[in-house]
Design a protein around this nucleic acid. Structure first.
Lengths: 164, 164
DNA sequence: AATTCTTGGCTAACACTGTTAACCAAGAAT
DNA sequence: ATTCTTGGTTAACAGTGTTAGCCAAGAATT
């Protein structure tokens, strides 16, 4: 495993354990037993680390979505459950422009594939479904829904419009 | 107009002109002809400023949505056009937990009202519609859709599921 | 075997961030 | 005439990402 990958491992751990503000060059370095400037021997800058996290999130989510049972409902469940299992990672991967230059080719389309399949190949429908799921997750993660809202019911209602 | 409101005015200007990273206490102060520490006489901390921006965004968006023609399509257009007219403000207002304690009561429900109305009072449907619109806007703003994607068509397709 | 090159660490330092403390002048209130 | 409040000031601190310059150890080359 490359040193860069070790850094990304540590970054994921810090992110999920202590939140995004704790993902600092000095904290990552400390966990690895080195000093912050040494990180730059393996990584271009902090943005490079975040792009790495984004790529990892896409890959992992793609695998999770691909393993879902067939059908729109199961796919939606998979999407939501992945996000809720890795909330910080979901945010950091999602709330920044896709760094297409820094991400291995095919990763983006692999993540999209299960959704496109569920949409029967209709790319507009696929994007609509994706946006719907992302919107629900994003609003839930940033506490925009009133406390106590029955989000299971909301998800069910949301999907009725699209189930054939 | 209170000094706090002046600060928020400046913050909005800096945000839209130079992006979120430029919204710094020293930059805001410089534009007002004072020094950074003086801002703290009118504002609790930087988070207080961001909460103020969030409140302003909600109010302005509520007015814009309320002025839309009746019908789901027009409401969706209004939502999207407001976001595209104030992209940075939309982000900063949306990508942080709703600071309900710092926001005037009624603002949140006023912003939600037009959507709830369009949903015929069904709160789950309203939240689904909101999430759909937010998801589409959010993904567009962070450049997640492939370059050149026909988003008008995606919006049209997205709404077909919900038009009665 | 002797030399050079590369790798991956180090310290020191810089410019910038939000924020606090301590001070002070001017007008309002008593 | 005195005191209090308002809204500004400078100096400073801890923490951020990042660069420059140095150096030891192992790899590679002659």
């Amino acid at each position: 495993m490359s040193r860069r990958d070790e850094i990304l491992d540590v970054a994921v751990a810090v992110l999920e354990e202590q939140g995004p503000d704790a993902v600092t060059m000095r904290e990552l370095a400390a966990r690895m037993g080195i000093r912050a400037p040494s990180l730059y021997k393996h990584v271009r800058d902090k943005d490079d680390i975040l792009a790495g996290l984004q790529e990892r999130a896409l890959i992992d989510m793609a695998r999770h979505l691909a393993a879902a049972e067939p059908g729109l409902g199961a796919l939606a469940d998979a999407y939501r459950s992945w996000a809720m299992a890795h909330p910080r990672l979901y945010e950091v991967a999602t709330r920044r422009p896709l760094a297409r230059e820094r991400i291995a080719p095919g990763v983006e389309s692999a993540a999209a594939a299960p959704i496109v399949a569920a949409a029967g190949g209709d790319e507009h429908l696929a994007r609509a479904l994706w946006a719907l799921a992302h919107g629900l997750v994003d609003l839930e993660l940033s506490n925009r829904f009133p406390p106590g809202a029955d989000l299971d019911a909301t998800w069910r209602k949301a999907l009725t419009g699209f189930e054939k």
